[in-house]
Nucleic acid binder design. Structure first.
Lengths: 189, 189
DNA sequence: TTGCCCATGTAACTTGTTACATGATTGT
DNA sequence: ACAATCATGTAACAAGTTACATGGGCAA
């Protein structure tokens, strides 16, 4: 139900193809709404059928044709209504690593293996933070954060990005605390 | 695929009924693996059929019968294998509020309404933190964190709880920053 | 020459959600 | 009297995942 609104919100940035949206959902949108390219293509079909989005075919040379999607007036109105209404469902998280941590104390589980998993997570978190930093610079466009937040027309995308950055930073801190604990326990035995 | 392991990991705490598991998934497990009671009942059926879990019917007076589930040896081994293997899928988050924030700059969206949504989120975050604090006290059982992390047999559940607490604290800080921004913009116009 | 990028899609399958049903007990 | 708690479940539906297919361009 909400992937619909995630797509509409993504199209606020302007016209985009399914492929471009799938890239966007891989970087910034992934922080709060996970989805695969297949889901997006399916959703776009539905949104077009329902008149919330319109498609324009762009012929390309030496590249497959692409369909550029944009919001219709009715899509925009629907999104406005959604944006002011209270959320229907609580935030859902699905993080396999945490299940593995929950079960790490089992006899058959090598603490070294657990360490490796946490280190991998930390590496990913750092990579994500790097990408966010670049997106942030682009959004700020030379202004300071304070200046931007006071004057810019659209601050929504910046506020969600702030959320993503804070989340990954916290993630990284957690990884480091866990690694410190695991290492000091390894030293004891 | 991983709800399976989330359930097995939950049963590490000991025998539990479907109902009790659904309570657990509502409090601590919800931080990293969301699921509804109906999913749990279905999953438990499957796990029993596959021999990873065994059920024992407990007759009760003045209460419906209940089925208490516990891990079998093969369930435990399966969980051990899972715990040491790298995650198959990246962490997925689905947070409606963030979509609403992303779209908040639309003309038809009242900034007051957006504020109210963020305040509600902050209230929930505080309530969650309260509950986590109680779970934490129970786990520590009077010891300090340092002492606990050095000597306890099972630290997995504490580490995931630490993650949940850090996540909610960050959430709350984000809410407060957003509210400060929204209020100072409201004062300007 | 292997593999990734662009660009879209179909089909089969697995998960997750929602609404409903039962029925006694306990608390306000 | 009404709602919540305990305790489980069915059925219908919506959403998400995985594997596969197409086919030229481009870089190491």
């Amino acid at each position: 139900m909400s992937l619909k609104y995630a797509v509409l919100a993504a199209l606020l940035e302007g016209e985009a193809s399914g492929y471009e949206l799938s890239k966007l959902f891989d970087v910034s949108f992934a922080n709060f709404w996970a989805s695969t390219p297949q889901q997006l293509y399916r959703e776009l079909e539905r949104l077009e059928r329902d008149g919330l989005v319109r498609a324009r075919v762009v012929r390309q040379e030496r590249r497959p044709d692409k369909r550029m999607f944009s919001l219709t007036e009715s899509g925009r109105r629907d999104l406005e209504t959604f944006a002011a209404a209270p959320p229907k469902r609580p935030t859902a998280i699905r993080d396999e690593l945490m299940i593995k941590i929950q079960a790490m104390d089992l006899d058959g589980v090598d603490p070294e293996a657990t360490c490796a998993l946490v280190e991998e997570r930390a590496t990913w978190a750092r990579a994500k933070l790097d990408r966010y930093a670049r997106v942030r610079e682009r959004l700020l466009g030379g202004r300071t954060e304070e200046e931007f937040l006071r004057r810019a027309d659209r601050i929504g995308p910046y506020l969600t990005l702030m959320g993503g950055i804070a989340f990954e930073e916290e993630n990284l801190r957690w990884c480091e605390r866990v690694l410190a604990v695991l290492r000091s326990r390894a030293a004891l035995s």
